[in-house]
Simulated assay, not measured.
Amino acid sequence: MSVKPDWLRVKAPQWERVGNVKEILRDLKLNTVCEEASCPNIGECFHNGTATFLIMGPACTRACPYCDIDFDKTPRSLDPEEPANLAEAVRRMRLNHVVVTSVNRDDLPDGGATQFARCIEAIRAASPGTTIEVLIPDLCGNWDALETILKAGPEVLNHNTETVERLYRRVRPQGNYERSLELLRRSRAIAPWVYTKSGIMLGLGESEAEIRQVMADLRRVDCDILTMGQYLQPTPKHLPIAEWVAPETFEQWQTLGESMGFLQVVASPLTRSSYHAEQVRALMERYPRSRS
């Protein structure tokens, strides 16, 4: 591909604020997807005092060719102090909204669902006013594990579809398109008060018709929130970029998504699934849901 377009260039962050966040993370032995996945928005988010925490990592049991997170067939044992340390980081950073994600842990019988639940419960105890979003893997289709996470009470359940069905074997060789949709469908059935969310990357060679189909499929399972961003190749060893998608094209996708009934669509070249995730608090005020 040609050189990166101007619209994908980000401003240099104020490193003093970034350093403060990193100091908290290192002190509490925590990982963030911002760092592990080389997110282009790390400067802005760390400057604003936000971060997407990566639990059960940093190594992943899957080797998706678009992702910059390290692969390891035999990842480390779970840290029993991780939930408490995560809750302490949320308290120190005074977060109004926190996103907790994880690597794939296909080596664990429940895919790490119990650790997700412990983290949710610890955050709730330390910072009861903080809303919690979990960005979870597909759990290998273990729906009991999904229920474990939802019963812990997150406000938002996020699971990324990532790409169109045709490209799954190439982009997510260990994933399954229908399984991802089923996870979102079951989340709505198990806990209808939880807002569901998914994200896709553009620029991998998908067609407009295929993008429309993913969006329709997500609405079919009553997904509330959609994020759409430009795929960026982390290293020459990763999947190549097939197309640079212009900002005005993302605006058109956002307009279409809103007309299809998504409660919120965040679409831009630099959008990632957790970018400006705190905006969900405004959505929750606009479209309140009760557990009763």
Rank of each mutant, 00 (worst) to 15 (best):
residue 246 A to H: 15
residue 207 S to N: 07
residue 166 R to I: 07
residue 95 L to M: 13
residue 241 I to N: 09
residue 109 P to Y: 12
residue 83 P to T: 02
residue 179 R to P: 00
residue 76 R to K: 14
residue 248 E to F: 13
residue 114 T to L: 14
residue 277 A to C: 10
residue 162 E to Q: 09
residue 204 L to C: 10
residue 158 N to I: 04
residue 31 N to W: 10
residue 142 N to Y: 06
residue 98 V to L: 07
residue 49 G to S: 07
residue 94 R to E: 13
residue 205 G to T: 05
residue 163 T to I: 06
residue 258 E to T: 06
residue 233 Q to I: 10
residue 239 L to A: 00
residue 268 S to K: 08
residue 43 G to K: 01
residue 273 S to N: 02
residue 217 D to E: 10
residue 165 E to I: 08
residue 241 I to Y: 02
residue 14 Q to D: 13
residue 138 D to R: 00
residue 268 S to E: 13
residue 85 N to P: 06
residue 218 L to W: 01
residue 9 R to Y: 14
residue 138 D to H: 00
residue 155 E to P: 10
residue 101 T to V: 06
residue 264 Q to K: 13
residue 257 G to F: 00
residue 180 S to G: 08
residue 31 N to C: 14
residue 210 E to R: 02
residue 66 Y to A: 11
residue 83 P to V: 00
residue 106 D to H: 03
residue 90 V to P: 00
residue 59 A to T: 15
residue 239 L to H: 03
residue 262 F to C: 01
residue 216 A to V: 12
residue 228 M to D: 04
residue 218 L to A: 00
residue 278 E to M: 11
residue 257 G to Q: 04
residue 71 F to L: 05
residue 21 V to H: 02
residue 46 F to A: 04
residue 216 A to H: 12
residue 87 A to S: 01
residue 28 L to I: 08
residue 75 P to W: 11
residue 140 C to D: 15
residue 93 M to F: 07
residue 105 R to F: 10
residue 8 L to D: 13
residue 264 Q to W: 14
residue 19 G to M: 12
residue 46 F to S: 05
residue 105 R to I: 05
residue 45 C to Q: 03
residue 107 D to S: 03
residue 177 Y to L: 05
residue 286 R to C: 07
residue 142 N to I: 05
residue 159 H to Y: 02
residue 222 D to F: 11
residue 215 M to C: 04
residue 177 Y to F: 06
residue 119 C to I: 09
residue 86 L to S: 00
residue 96 N to F: 08
residue 14 Q to G: 14
residue 148 T to H: 08
residue 144 D to A: 15
residue 168 Y to W: 08
residue 156 V to W: 04
residue 229 G to D: 02
residue 5 P to D: 03
residue 114 T to P: 10
residue 40 P to Q: 11
residue 233 Q to T: 07
residue 50 T to C: 09
residue 164 V to I: 11
residue 227 T to S: 00
